[in-house]
């Protein structure tokens, strides 16, 4: 059995997807885990609450794993039948990996927000719901990354193991992946805002609406990335069927 360049590139794409998003989630979980450890040293009964916040930034790694599995399954890796896949299909997989993998760094922002959620909920249990919502705000960037990755794989036919995508389209999709993936870093800024938003809401529950407006402003730049990615997909003719 010959392993084509495309298959190798698909493997790299899967690696980027799960590797980058795992770095993001690892750092995010680390940040919130550190705050959680501090809280439970003083208030051991808060372990369950702290565990929920700690779990929040790990969804990015799950999205990365999902795209990696979809790529590996489409490429026949899971059945041991990865073969002579054309190079353009491999490049699309790399683009999808960049999209979801880089956007996975949004977990850092989520970790910053969730750490504030842990600290404030330890003092005021009624802050739990609001803390989780603020932390969830920063996941939008990861969802955009996942969305574009799925659209790339579905619209090029790779998801159904159709590898007939052309080279110019495949290279163009790397641009889309970079657009939405790098824009996902805006979640770090958003996480900082959300962290302060949680503190503000803990002091004044009525501040939740305006704090969310401030938090949403950082998301604007992620929307720019998403729009550019969608325009690239459109420009490459993927929406025309």
């Amino acid at each position: 059995m010959t392993i084509g360049t495309g298959a190798v590139l698909m493997a790299i794409g899967a690696g980027i997807a799960v590797g980058c998003s795992a770095i993001g989630s690892g750092i995010g979980v680390g940040i919130v885990g550190s705050a959680a450890s501090g809280v439970i040293s003083e208030r051991p009964e808060k372990f369950g609450m702290a565990l929920v916040f700690t779990a929040v930034p790990q969804t990015q790694a799950i999205y990365g794993l999902l795209i990696a599995i979809l790529i590996l399954q489409a490429g026949g890796f899971l059945g041991g039948t990865a073969g002579d896949i054309p190079t353009p299909a491999g490049i699309v997989a790399i683009a999808a990996g960049l999209s979801v993998g880089l956007a996975g760094f949004s977990a850092i922002g989520q970790g910053i927000a969730a750490a504030s959620g842990v600290a404030n909920t330890a003092e005021k249990p009624e802050m739990f719901g609001r803390g989780v919502v603020f932390a969830a705000v920063c996941e939008t960037q990861a969802i955009y990354g996942l969305l574009i990755a799925v659209l790339m794989l579905a619209l090029t036919g790779i998801l159904s193991s159709d590898f007939s995508v052309e080279m110019p389209i495949a290279i163009g999709l790397v641009g889309a992946g970079l657009a939405v993936g790098l824009a996902g870093f805006s979640a770090i800024g958003q996480g900082i805002t959300c962290s302060s938003g949680i503190a503000a809401t803990a002091r004044n529950p009525g501040a939740i609406g305006r704090s969310l407006v401030f938090a949403a402003m950082s998301e604007t730049f992620a929307i720019f990335g998403l729009l550019v990615a969608i325009l690239i997909l459109f420009g490459l003719g993927l929406f025309s069927g």
Partner: peptide, 24 residues
């Protein structure tokens, strides 16, 4: 404007989470 667009696109998380559950 961007907020409204973001709010609308935010609903694609329904797809994202459905994919994540089934995929994992």
């Amino acid at each position: 404007l961007t907020g409204f667009l973001g709010d609308w696109l935010s609903y694609v998380r329904i797809l994202a989470l459905a994919l994540a559950t089934g995929g994992i």
